[in-house]
Amino acid sequence: MAEELYGRCALVTGGSGGIGGAISLSLAAAGADVVLTYSDHRAPAEGIADQIRALGQRALVLAADLRMPDAAAATVDAARAEFGQVDVLVANAGVGHQLSWEQVELDLWDETMAVNLRAPWLMTRAVLPEMISRRYGRILFLSSIAALNGGVIGPHYAASKAGLHGLMHHLAARVAGAGVTVNTIAPALIAGTGFTAVNPDNPAMPVPVGRLGSADDVAAMVLAMLTNSYLTNKVITLDGGIYPD
């Protein structure tokens, strides 16, 4: 694993959150320099960056309002300016306000699509040409089981995450021959994310393994996916056995 990512530059959106922070630290432990973005919470992102530097890797923290169309390209430009190139893109940032379908208005729909689907596409479009020219690249989208079963957050969230699967399927086969992999991980019921609508102390918890997932569980699977050059065009579910795919 260390050989695969050593000396690479990884861009992780939503790096101030639990999952984004765990992914960022796992990449640094594997020898990558990390650019991590945040939208509202700079202090946690800086804390992750300090831990990355303590591991001997370089870190850059960037504010990025991914609701804005120009934020994606600006973030990639800033990462390149600091580290020269982006070898790994982990599109982790996401929003999800839980509402019934009757309550989802146009502004919320558009905001959810902008952050969860448009921003990953615009960042991918920004990094792909250089990845192809260098014949190396790793792109990973953070989806959700909601993309497969509809979930409980709402139609806006489920649709935005399902869109990532279509984006991945379109791109993966077209760039695989250039040494670029495009994959998606679809977690469910990860503790500490704000997207967990169950009580972990409930004896009737719906997770077959009997516990919620952790950010470290997600980071471990992300690292395995990013370091496997034969894995592309795949949605990997990580849900404790909920979804029988």
Rank of each mutant, 00 (worst) to 15 (best):
A45Q: 04
L60I: 05
Q85R: 15
H41M: 07
T37M: 13
A79R: 05
P69C: 08
I52F: 10
G56Y: 12
T75E: 08
G47R: 13
Q57L: 05
A59N: 06
A29R: 14
L36D: 06
G47Q: 14
A81Y: 00
L27C: 01
A74L: 13
A72N: 07
A45T: 01
R53I: 00
V76H: 11
Q85Y: 09
R80S: 00
Y38V: 04
D77L: 08
A63E: 15
V76K: 09
L55H: 03
S26A: 15
A79C: 07
D33H: 13
A30T: 01
Q51P: 01
D50L: 12
V76S: 13
A63G: 10
L60F: 05
F83Q: 04
A78E: 12
L60S: 12
A30S: 14
S26E: 15
D70N: 08
G56V: 11
A45K: 02
R67E: 15
F83H: 04
L66Y: 07
P44L: 14
L55Q: 15
I48H: 14
A28P: 02
R53N: 05
G56F: 12
A73M: 05
A72Q: 07
H41P: 00
R42V: 09
P69A: 14
L27A: 01
R42E: 15
G31R: 06
